[in-house]
Amino acid sequence: MKIALGSDHGGFQLKEYIKEHLEKRDIEYIDYGTDSTESVDYPEFGQKVAEAVKNGECDRGIVCCGTGIGISISANKVPGIRCALVSDCYSAKMSREHNNANVLALGARVIGKDLALEIVDVWIDTEFQGGRHERRVNKISDIENKYVI
Results as ranks from 00 to 15, higher is better:
110 V>A: 05
41 D>L: 13
15 K>C: 00
105 A>Y: 08
141 S>E: 08
24 K>N: 12
27 I>V: 09
131 G>Q: 01
124 I>A: 02
136 R>H: 07
135 R>F: 01
135 R>E: 00
97 E>Y: 12
59 D>I: 00
67 T>V: 10
99 N>C: 08
66 G>D: 05
117 L>D: 05
80 G>S: 08
142 D>Y: 11
140 I>H: 05
46 G>D: 02
44 E>G: 02
122 V>C: 08
83 C>E: 01
141 S>P: 03
9 H>K: 06
94 M>E: 11
123 W>T: 15
12 F>Y: 13
121 D>Y: 04
104 L>R: 11
96 R>C: 08
149 I>F: 09
52 A>G: 09
144 E>P: 12
149 I>Q: 15
25 R>D: 10
115 L>K: 15
38 E>T: 06
132 R>W: 10
35 D>S: 14
115 L>C: 06
16 E>C: 14
68 G>A: 08
9 H>T: 06
36 S>I: 05
40 V>Q: 09
8 D>T: 00
13 Q>W: 07
64 C>W: 00
109 R>S: 13
17 Y>T: 08
110 V>L: 10
129 Q>P: 03
106 L>Q: 03
85 L>S: 09
67 T>Q: 04
58 C>Q: 12
56 G>D: 03
141 S>G: 06
112 G>T: 00
77 K>W: 12
78 V>T: 03
87 S>T: 06
5 L>E: 10
6 G>Y: 03
134 E>H: 10
68 G>L: 12
65 C>L: 04
27 I>W: 04
50 A>K: 02
92 A>Y: 07
106 L>F: 03
24 K>R: 13
59 D>V: 00
103 V>F: 07
104 L>P: 06
112 G>S: 10
69 I>R: 11
76 N>Y: 01
27 I>K: 00
63 V>L: 04
49 V>T: 03
112 G>Q: 13
96 R>E: 04
117 L>Y: 04
97 E>L: 07
43 P>T: 03
47 Q>Y: 08
115 L>G: 02
105 A>H: 02
42 Y>N: 00
29 Y>L: 00
22 L>H: 02
119 I>N: 03
50 A>S: 13
66 G>C: 04
133 H>G: 09
10 G>L: 08
70 G>R: 06
50 A>T: 07
37 T>S: 14
60 R>Q: 01
30 I>E: 12
96 R>W: 12
138 N>K: 15
133 H>D: 09
114 D>M: 15
27 I>D: 04
60 R>C: 01
61 G>K: 03
85 L>F: 06
84 A>V: 13
109 R>G: 07
73 I>Q: 14
56 G>Y: 05
61 G>T: 01
122 V>Q: 01
53 V>G: 09
1 M>C: 07
131 G>A: 13
